[in-house]
């Protein structure tokens, strides 16, 4: 296997970069979408069960199936990969963002309004910072999950390490089949752990010392 890695070192590195890039960008997009949706949901209480339903049912849809549905709509390549990863990534974040925003003490929100903050300022300076630790927990779950979903996206010729796994699977019994699948899987695990560590650091930097747990 060592030989396999050293032979394809550059290719593996490039695919790893693509993989991480796909995940990071999709999760970033998903975060924005999820927080916007959560804001909507917490403003109109009637939407709350809908959001919970969507986020739990959404997660039960097999990603391969969703990809299949997407293909006729958006074609093959990077775009379906981004759409699918973003879709899955937004679900845990949405759920946590709703919980986080609802957990903000109503007195604090009223206090903010009473001091003359408008709705947007109240959100940006009070509600979001206070809900942030919970949202961030969702973000971490979502990132881990997206690393795996992104591998599936290779089925639609998306970028990243997924194509190695599919190559391995299609060549089962061949010389390098196990190497292909194993190297990609291990690389994804390592990258996922690295990303998680990065998110931990991000969490410490972006969470106010006043509400940090430890």
């Amino acid at each position: 296997m060592w030989q396999f890695v050293t032979d394809r070192w550059l290719d593996i590195a490039y695919r790893s970069y693509q993989h991480v890039s796909l995940v990071v960008q999709s999760v970033a997009l998903a975060t924005v979408i999820a927080i916007a949706l959560a804001l909507l949901v917490t403003s109109y209480r009637r939407l709350e069960p809908v959001a919970n339903f969507v986020s739990s049912v959404g997660l039960t849809i097999p990603s391969l199936a969703l990809l299949g549905i997407m293909l006729p709509v958006v074609g093959i390549g990077t775009i379906p990969a981004v759409v699918v990863v973003t879709f899955y990534a937004s679900l845990p974040i949405l759920r946590n963002a709703v919980v986080g925003l609802q957990g903000v003490d109503r007195n604090l929100v009223e206090s903010a309004r009473g001091m003359g903050m408008n709705g947007w300022t109240t959100f940006r300076r009070v509600r979001l910072p206070l809900a942030w630790p919970v949202i961030l927990a969702g973000l971490r779950v979502s990132t881990q999950m997206s690393m795996g979903v992104a591998a599936i996206a290779a089925y639609a010729l998306g970028p990243g390490l997924g194509s190695y796994i599919f190559t391995g699977l299609t060549q089962i019994g061949g010389v390098n089949a196990v190497n292909y699948a194993l190297v990609a899987t291990i690389a994804i695990i390592i990258l996922a752990l690295l990303l998680d560590a990065l998110l931990l650091v991000l969490g410490r930097v972006t969470t106010s010392e006043g509400i940090r747990v430890s």
């Binding site: 003490d105 604090l108 206090s111 009473g114 001091m115 003359g116 106010s208 006043g210 509400i211």
Partner: peptide, 18 residues
Amino acid sequence: LRRHVGYVIQGGSLFPHM
């Protein structure tokens, strides 16, 4: 208006992250 009317509520209601 509210920026020119002081508002103090129970427990101070300070923003914990500030």
